[in-house]
Computed example of a mutant assay.
Amino acid sequence: MVARRRSATGRTRWATLGVTATVRRAEMSDEAVIYEVSEGVATLTLNRPERMNAWNASLDQAMSASLAAARDDDAVRAIIVTGAGRAFCAGADLGGGADTFAGREDSDAGSNFAQLWPYEVPKPVIAAINGPAVGIGMTYPMLCDVRIAAETAKLGFVFTRRGMMPELAAHTIVQRVAGFSNAAHLLMSGRIVTGAEAAELGIVSKAVPKETLLDTARAMASEYRYAAPVSVAVTKRLLWEGMHTGVSAMRDREDEVFSWIGNQADAREGVLSFLEKRDPDWKLSAARDLPEGFA
Rank of each mutant, 00 (worst) to 15 (best):
K277I: 03
S205C: 08
S222D: 08
L239K: 13
S231D: 10
A249N: 10
E241K: 14
D266Y: 08
R251D: 12
A233D: 03
M220H: 11
Q264P: 04
L214R: 01
L214S: 10
Q264D: 12
N263I: 00
I203T: 07
P229N: 09
I192L: 07
T194V: 05
T216V: 10
I261A: 06
I261D: 07
L275H: 01
T194K: 08
L239M: 13
R191E: 15
A207F: 06
A207L: 06
E256S: 14
E254W: 15
V271M: 12
V208C: 04
G246D: 15
A196F: 06
S273N: 05
V208I: 13
R225Q: 11
F258K: 13
K277R: 08
D266K: 03
F274V: 15
V257L: 14
A198V: 06
Y224M: 03
K206I: 14
R218D: 04
V230N: 00
S222H: 02
L214Y: 11
V193E: 06
A199S: 11
K210M: 11
A228W: 01
I203G: 00
E254K: 15
Y224T: 05
V230I: 02
V230A: 03
R237F: 10
E276Q: 09
S259P: 01
L239N: 08
E241Q: 12
D252C: 12
T245R: 07
A221N: 05
V193N: 04
D215Q: 13
A199G: 04
V193L: 05
G195D: 04
G270A: 15
V234I: 10
L201C: 08
E254F: 15
S248T: 15
E254S: 14
L238F: 00
S273Q: 07
V232N: 03
L213D: 01
I203E: 01
A196P: 02
S231K: 02
V204L: 00
S273I: 00
K210L: 11
W240R: 08
T216W: 00
G195S: 11
E211Y: 10
A249M: 05
T194M: 09
E211F: 13
R237N: 09
